[in-house]
């Protein structure tokens, strides 16, 4: 199958995944909107008003990029993870495995759905944040690049999780025990400069810290670490996960008997 036909196959899969996100809007759009509204009210308004931040930003302004990123991370991850696992569970993954669509396109197609959901919820949270604070934009390029790269990375992470998952419990383990703790400790609600030195060093091992700080830089123009390092880490993670997923799909891990 030539390049053009692979593109049609990729378009079909990506379109199907995006349509799925819209079809399940009550699961994909509404819950993050409600959760983030509560975050803005509780952490931003009720508690945030009593916290003063440096460099002339309110606490609400500081946490907003982190909360947007939080929804992008969790939604892109869970979208691909649940969609792929659901196909495996129903065995409808066989529709793709018997077709000549390449493994490259399969991974990219699912990632496309994850990116779509991540950006959709990210945009929703961004709109909600405007009800509570005034957003300032330092660099559109950095905001868009970080959000797409982060959504891609976590979509690919969700794909990997779903490949290995054998039961529904398995798709909840990584988000509950790894993803959420790393995100909360990744500087959504605080600057690592407020931590003791030892914890600052420990925090540097958390890749999510770089994503959130890079994204925050796009809005506020301030970051705890280098934006370029964040880009490099994100790109490396995305590339490694993409290659790993294509390789595992080729090997048939989690998909073929």
């Amino acid at each position: 199958m030539g390049f053009k036909r692979q593109c049609f196959a990729l378009y079909t899969l990506m379109h199907k995944e995006c349509v799925r996100v819209v079809r399940i809007w009550s699961q994909s759009i509404i819950p993050p909107a409600i959760t983030m509204t509560l975050y803005f009210i509780v952490f931003g308004k009720l508690i945030g008003d009593k916290i003063s931040m440096a460099e002339g930003f309110s606490y609400m302004q500081f946490i907003t990029p982190g909360l947007i990123m939080l929804s992008i991370i969790s939604n892109s991850y869970m979208n691909v993870c649940s969609s792929l696992f659901s196909l495996k569970f129903q065995k409808s993954i066989e529709e793709l495995l018997v077709a000549p669509i390449s493994n490259f396109c399969i991974v990219l197609g699912f990632a496309g759905g994850g990116i779509f959901r991540g950006l959709l919820t990210g945009t929703t949270v961004c709109i909600i944040s405007l009800l509570f604070t005034k957003l300032q934009i330092h660099s559109w390029f950095i905001i868009i690049a970080f959000s797409i790269l982060t959504a891609l990375t976590f979509s690919l992470g969700g794909f990997l999780n779903a490949l290995f998952a054998k039961k529904f419990d398995d798709i909840a383990i990584v988000p509950t025990f790894i993803l959420i703790p790393l995100t909360y400790l990744g500087g959504v609600f605080y600057s690592i400069n407020t931590l003791p030195e030892i914890w600052q060093r420990v925090s540097l091992a958390n890749p999510i810290l770089y994503m959130i700080n890079g994204f925050r830089y796009g809005f506020l123009g301030v970051s705890d670490m280098s934006v370029y390092t964040g880009f490099a880490i994100l790109t490396a993670f995305a590339a490694a996960l993409f290659c790993l997923n294509v390789f595992l799909l080729h090997k048939g891990t989690g998909t073929r008997t």
Binding site: M1, G2, K4, R5, Q6, F8, A9, Y11, T12, L13, H15, K16, E95, L96, A99, P100, I101
Partner: peptide
């Protein structure tokens, strides 16, 4: 969708 996975245009 199956037709699409076989590389057919929409």
């Amino acid at each position: 969708n199956q037709a699409g996975y076989f590389g057919l245009s929409r």
